Computed example of a mutant assay.
Amino acid sequence: MAVKKQEDGTWLVDFRGNGKGSKRFRKKFKTKGEALRYMSYVKTKVVQQPDWNPPKKDMRRLSDLIMRWYEIHGKHSKSGESRKSRLLKLAEVSGNPTAENLNAGWFVSLREVRSKDVSANTLNHDRAYLSAMFNELRRVGEWGKENPIKDSRKIKYDERELRYLSKKEIEVLLDKLSESRNKSALLITKVCLATGARWSEAETLRRENVKDGKISFWSTKNGKARHIPIGRELEEEVLSHGGSGRLFRGSYEAFSNAIRKANIELPEGQMTHVLRHTFASHFIMQGGSILTLQRILDHSTITMTMRYAHLSPDHLEEAKSLNALEVIK
């Protein structure tokens, strides 16, 4: 018997590579075409190399690959722990398939399932994290096949509104924060508005991070330190708060309450991040350089910073004088 249809509808390949007494090959396929192609492939291999054996199936689960990536690379990264948790969630959602089933079709199915609960931006992050994991495993020889995410594309989506606070809203917010029993919340907010820092960066500042008219942010998102100049008044105000070591206590809830009391409505997910947007927006509106802003915010690409370019006083001003209506005047 070489190729025979089974009762369950599958096709069984069963033959000896070089005739009687040689190695026997058996494998099932869904279609007769697949079975015949496999038999032809094996016969060619055996002719070229008589002791050839088909590669064994990789029975590792996706979660096994994730943990291997974590041991090799992830645990040495600042975001490794959170990245591992997210990847394991993706493994769970996709049924934790074996390595043999990790292909382009698997990723398409995973993204289809995820799209019911998360945004396009989150789906693109899923893609980036999985692709980076497979690339790292390939680099160290732990993954021999192609990266299954390699040919996938990012999902295009409309940019979210980058809400920023007006001068009046800033004044009202600071007034409400000054009434809070949590005095750290007001100072953290001021630091964010003065430097463009993320809330977590400002909230975890230590006394030694503030000196000589600058604030040094060491615990940053990408691990790169930033040193941002501040006014003398803010420096004195910050240093007069608290004792040695960490300057501020946890203040997210106090900030959220102040936003509510100030009747400020924000898009979902921009509660404290609105302060970073506010810094960037007013910086550009007052004539600040987009390249300087990129360095202050520590954006990895200028594309991220260009989201604020339209706020520049002379942004696309030529449109007023060089448009088609002006031509006929």
Score class of each variant (00 low, 15 high):
L291K: 12
E159S: 15
E317S: 13
L162Y: 03
G141Q: 14
N147D: 03
R153S: 15
V172P: 05
R26W: 09
E326L: 02
E112C: 12
D51E: 07
H227F: 06
N209G: 08
N209R: 06
Q294C: 15
R139Y: 13
I284F: 08
N147C: 01
A99V: 05
E146G: 08
W199N: 00
K28A: 10
L90M: 13
E233L: 14
R307L: 08
E318L: 10
L130C: 15
Y41C: 07
A262M: 12
M285W: 07
A120S: 15
S119M: 00
G74S: 02
E203I: 06
E159W: 06
Y308V: 01
R226M: 14
K27Q: 11
E265P: 11
W106Y: 12
A194C: 09
D158W: 02
T10Q: 07
H310Y: 07
G105H: 04
R206W: 04
E81I: 13
F248L: 03
E169M: 10
E159F: 07
K145F: 07
H277N: 03
K4R: 11
S115M: 06
V42E: 01
L174D: 01
L88K: 06
A197V: 06
G223N: 14
I149P: 01
V3Y: 05
A128Q: 13
P148G: 05
K30Q: 08
W199F: 08
Y164L: 02
Q286I: 08
V172C: 08
L177I: 10
S216C: 09
Y164P: 02
H277Q: 04
L247V: 01
G144E: 12
I228R: 03
N263M: 11
S77P: 02
V47A: 08
E81S: 15
R61F: 14
F217E: 01
S82D: 08
F15I: 03
D151A: 05
L187C: 09
N147H: 02
I215F: 12
G243K: 07
L12S: 10
L291I: 15
V238Y: 02
M306L: 14
A324G: 07
D58W: 06
Q294G: 14
Q294K: 15
S82W: 07
K211H: 15
R249A: 12
S240L: 13
H299T: 00
M133I: 08
L293P: 02
R68M: 10
D298Q: 11
R138T: 13
S180F: 12
G17S: 13
G196K: 03
H73S: 14
R232H: 12
L174H: 03
T98C: 03
M304G: 03
K224C: 03
K224V: 10
T195A: 09
L90V: 10
D126L: 05
V93N: 12
M306W: 12
R61I: 10
V93Y: 07
D175I: 04
I296Q: 10
C192F: 00
S289L: 09
K183S: 13
G250A: 11
H299C: 00
L102W: 07
Y38W: 07
N124D: 15
Y164V: 02
K56M: 11
I230T: 13
L88V: 04
N222I: 05
S131L: 00
G17R: 10
T31P: 01
K5Q: 14
E112P: 09
G288Y: 14
I259M: 01
K183M: 11
L102I: 08
Q48A: 15
N257D: 11
D314Q: 11
